[in-house]
Design a protein around this nucleic acid. Structure first.
Lengths: 151, 151
DNA sequence: CGATCAGGTTTTTAATTGAAACCAGTTTAG
DNA sequence: CTAAACTGGTTTCAATTAAAAACCTGATCG
């Protein structure tokens, strides 16, 4: 599944894409945020071939994004639930969603929107911010190669 | 390139992944945020086959993420620069990066980090927020199907 | 003028995807 | 209690896609 070129890459973006960056993984995770847990539910929702779904779920479990556990309804079947690591993908999915909402829909076109349960209002657009809270664009940042844990 | 199943999907996440959700597109865009502009620079940075790079750049230009224009150094060659639509992918790339930094590196391992030019400090972790500014987790939100522009 | 470089395209081969059939264990309906 | 249907897959095979390498055209450099 992983390519040797990106696997040991020191760029975190590359590593992330290697783990969850294929066509279906992020769709599966999106569904999981919508409380889908069982194989057949994922398959119905996504329309993906069962062999592909099986291989993706297996990979996502191996990498620690999902846990497999007995179904909560007491049946003998399994369910796939996001680990904390998986839940923390939420900002990625929301930023993908917001970009699509803004640039990929015609005015008047039907779409699904993400609402805050408490207020019923749409969530805020996500922004990159500096330590002091200022909004940062791509030109306000730079990458630096660094060893973690250095003094 | 696009699948019929996701193309007319009303889920913005699905549409976004259809446009920029393949193995290389987001890597190309990440490089663009790092001021890479020319074909040969992308190729050298990514190590991707030239035909794949060419097809991705072409698709990304068609979809309005990149503009092609004459090289800024006055030579007869081209360069690929992000449109506004492309620049707005920044939050997606940063959230991918931050997830990878947090979950995909061992302590002490070399990585690249993203710093604010002004302060030299790392950027803040991205968060999903409600209209009132409260941090929202996946359980605090729900999706709703809606027609845009309704009164 | 010849060599080299930028920016691809074409060809060929390898890997991945997806559809469909199949299958074992589980649950439900009668 | 038994047959039918459902769950969660695996296997097989055809078709699509990706990747490597060779090739090509025009631009630039020496």
């Amino acid at each position: 599944m992983e390519t040797a070129s990106t696997q040991n890459n020191e760029c975190p973006v590359a590593r992330t894409l290697d783990v969850i960056g294929d066509r279906w993984s992020l769709m599966i995770i999106r569904d999981a945020f919508d409380d889908i847990r069982r194989f057949s539910e994922f398959q119905k929702s996504l329309g993906v071939a069962k062999n592909i779904l099986a291989s993706r779920l297996k990979a996502l479990v191996e990498v620690g994004v999902f846990d497999v556990r007995p179904a909560s309804d007491g049946s003998a079947y399994k369910e796939y639930v996001l680990t904390e690591k998986g839940q923390e993908i939420f900002p990625v999915v929301v930023s993908l969603r917001q970009w699509g909402e803004r640039f990929l829909f015609e005015p008047g076109e039907t779409r699904s929107v993400l609402l805050d349960n408490a207020s019923g209002q749409a969530v805020m657009p996500m922004e990159v911010r500096s330590a002091s809270g200022a909004k940062l664009g791509p030109l306000d940042c730079h990458r630096l190669r660094r060893v973690d844990g250095e003094s």
